[in-house]
Amino acid sequence: MTYIPEPDRYQKMKYNRCGRSGLLLPAISLGLWQNFGDDVSHLKKVEICTTAFDLGITHFDLANNYGPPPGTAEKAFGRILREEFAGLRDEMIISSKAGYLMWPGPYGEWGSRKYIISSCDQTLRRLGVDYVDIFYSHRFDPETPLEETMLALDQLVRSGKALYVGISSYNASRTREAYAILKELGTPFIIHQPSYSMLNRWIETDGLLDTLDEFGLGSIVFSPLAQGMLTNKYLKNIPSDSRASKNRSLSTSFLNTENLERIHALNAIAEQRGQSLAQLALAWVLKTKGVTSALIGASSAQQVIDCVGALDKLDFTEAELSTIDQYALDGHINIWAKSSEHER
């Protein structure tokens, strides 16, 4: 059957301005990092994406290496664009990134001009589009001059392959350097994509939030649910089909006694508020000044529905925030920390 979007979809979503740019992003965006590779049925991918769009989620976030294998998430979404979302491209924000290993040899990862521009060209072919709305440097490359990486992003905009550019997992210091270069070039640098959750608060202590505010940059935070830790998935045990059981980016060591005690305490707070734990976690990151959008992943359409339900209760009392802060402590789960540092 031909997909027909819900006519009231834009009344179901909250849209936030991305920094001081003209771009609005949905408060909840859909990331295709997990569950969009060849190991998941295409029908399930379609159901997740169409449900998201029906709820007003207009932003779909990818990267060249998403899969598995790398590249297959972009191919899958390209097929959905052609078959389900035909004629809807101008109602969507599509983003992708380059920085992690994509092909063998010396030109297949990091931040060289060769890699960044080749990656974007491949992304456009896999998606079947002429341009992406946002293209990111996925991680800082300590061995390539930052000017080279930023010049590559600038060229993508000037050649019409991207409308805006962003960076991901850069610390505050490197973000300042990137901003200075791109400002001088006149490149539309509008957004940063850092990891952030109640168990991973590095952007507060690093000063990144203050830096983004100073420069008028937006942010879209990834892993706001701590890769599923801040959901009901691990409240009782480790499910056999979970990321932790498959050791796919979420190590079972993260589910230690200390973290699990915090998760249970946060779940109790969520229940008192009439929310699921995931809804609490999303509302908590969205109350943070400078957070434009929370980037979720989903393995089912129902998970998307539950996450968007967070928008029904975004307000917190001072007492609630104080209690949350007792348990929203760093759980040593930031596996992207090296992307913000000085060594490979």
Results as ranks from 00 to 15, higher is better:
T257H: 15
D210R: 06
Y136C: 04
I28T: 02
F135P: 00
A278C: 13
I305G: 02
K97N: 05
N171G: 02
S242P: 14
P69A: 13
R158H: 04
F135K: 00
W202K: 03
S29L: 02
C49Q: 01
T205Y: 09
T2M: 12
G22F: 05
W103I: 09
P104Q: 10
A265T: 14
M13D: 01
F189M: 03
S96C: 06
D90C: 09
K114V: 11
I116Y: 07
F60T: 01
G105A: 10
G99N: 10
E261F: 15
R201G: 01
Q279E: 13
M92G: 04
A98E: 06
G105E: 10
V132K: 01
P224H: 05
K114Y: 12
Q326E: 14
L321S: 12
P70W: 03
P70N: 08
P239R: 14
S169A: 11
A278T: 12
W336N: 11
K313C: 09
N256W: 14
E271F: 15
F189C: 02
A162T: 05
G22C: 06
F77L: 01
K114P: 10
G186H: 03
I134S: 01
D210C: 04
F189T: 00
S242Q: 13
L151G: 02
L151C: 06
Q326V: 15
L81G: 00
E318M: 14
L329E: 10
K338P: 07
L329F: 10
L62V: 08
E109S: 11
D206I: 01
I203C: 00
W202N: 03
Q193T: 05
Q11P: 05
A226K: 12
E6C: 12
P142N: 06
A294H: 02
S300N: 11
G99H: 09
W110E: 06
I57W: 02
A319E: 15
Y115Q: 06
H342W: 07
T175F: 01
G297I: 10
I269E: 15
L88S: 08
H264P: 13
F53L: 05
R125N: 09
F316T: 13
L277E: 14
F140R: 02
F215K: 04
M150V: 07
Q326P: 14
R79V: 05
S119F: 06
K14S: 03
L225T: 10
F53C: 03
W336Y: 12
V46H: 04
D130P: 04
Y10R: 09
K14L: 07
G108E: 08
C49S: 06
N334S: 07
P145S: 07
A162S: 08
L124G: 00
N256F: 12
S340T: 04
R82F: 05
G228Q: 09
I181L: 08
H192E: 06
E83H: 09
L329M: 15
D130Q: 08
A337G: 06
Y66S: 03
K75A: 08
V304L: 09
P68Q: 10
V291S: 00
Q11C: 09
R158S: 04
N64P: 07
L163G: 04
Q34F: 08
V165Y: 02
L260S: 13
A73E: 02
T187S: 04
Q193Y: 04
P145C: 05
A298L: 06
P145N: 07
